[in-house]
């Protein structure tokens, strides 16, 4: 995909930049996942991600790392957004976990989600395997330029058919994806409720611009997402839940205004852990 057409405002070099930080984030997720042991708390796991990335030069964040263990992977009983933040829940043998982080590195943003378990967890393995169909479905329908809201509904239907609950509905605005962009590097970048202010500013600017042009940087089930995919970089995060176990992936989908369907939308990087995992299973 290196010959890909870049979306407006992003050159091939920029795509490389995004790809690099996404790889860095996934490396971090795999490194931290390998260190998780019984007794580690969610806060501990979030801290490990933060430190790992800090050591590699990450200073700004789209959002700070999250970690969810056990039934919190399926957002069981979540009512207010504060519940997303890491807690003192301790990891146990066989427990599922999700690591979710969005570092900004050299001005490029990544937003990734990594699902795994401590020791074997056949149920989460099944959920993860079933996510593959969603990755294919989303790409196919974005290439068909279907309205985002309809794609959202199709993902919902597929989840229901698989027997799972849609858990990305629990995210703010129920989003399955949101836009990410370049962020200006500042020496000081404060955070608001775990979200980097620079990135929030970018998102807000997109929202204003999109509002005038009839699109939204948030891909939600609501009416404001009733428009064809807007060119740009979308962090897509389908999240399945099933009886107290959850699984998600999150990675960047590049949407361009190319007429060639192949080039009109593609995953930023196909060499990500969940895709490798599906390939191994085959």
């Amino acid at each position: 995909m290196t010959s890909a057409v870049a979306p407006p405002g992003a050159t091939g070099a920029e795509l490389r930049g995004f790809r690099e930080v996404q790889r860095l984030a996934y490396e971090c997720a795999e490194a931290v996942a390998a260190q998780l042991a019984p007794g580690v708390t969610e806060r501990g796991a979030a801290r490990m991600q933060r430190d790992w990335l800090h050591r590699r030069g990450v200073r700004d964040w789209f959002h700070l790392p999250f970690a969810w263990f056990g039934d919190r992977t399926a957002f069981t009983g979540f009512r207010v957004p504060l519940q997303f933040f890491p807690t003192g829940r301790r990891l146990e043998e066989g427990m599922a976990f999700i690591l979710d982080m969005a570092p900004v590195h050299k001005g490029f943003t990544a937003d990734i989600g990594y699902s795994g378990s401590l020791g074997p967890n056949p149920l989460q393995d099944r959920l993860l395997a079933d996510l593959e169909a969603h990755r294919d479905l989303i790409l196919r329908e974005v290439r068909e330029r279907r309205p985002l809201r309809e794609i959202y509904e199709d993902v919902d239907r597929l989840m229901a058919h698989q027997g799972y609950a849609n858990r990305h509905r629990a995210y703010p605005f129920g989003v399955i994806a949101h836009k990410v962009d370049r962020v200006a590097e500042r020496r000081w970048s404060p955070r608001l409720f775990g979200f980097g202010t620079q990135s929030l500013r970018g998102l807000a600017a997109d929202a204003v611009r999109g509002h005038r042009a009839g699109w939204s940087p948030l891909w939600s089930p609501h009416r404001f997402s009733d428009h064809p995919p807007a060119p740009g970089l979308w962090a897509v995060e389908p999240h399945l839940g099933f009886r107290g176990t959850g699984a998600k992936f999150e990675e960047i989908l590049v949407v361009t205004d190319s007429a060639d369907p192949e080039q009109s939308a593609f995953w930023l990087d196909d060499d990500v852990p969940h895709v490798r995992r599906w390939a191994e299973e085959k």
């Binding site: 149920l123 099944r126 698989q162 027997g163 099933f242 009886r243």
Partner: peptide
């Protein structure tokens, strides 16, 4: 298909 799916999920839980 959906019956088989239910049975599969049942074994998993």
């Amino acid at each position: 298909q959906s019956a088989a799916r239910t049975a599969e999920l049942a074994r998993l839980v």
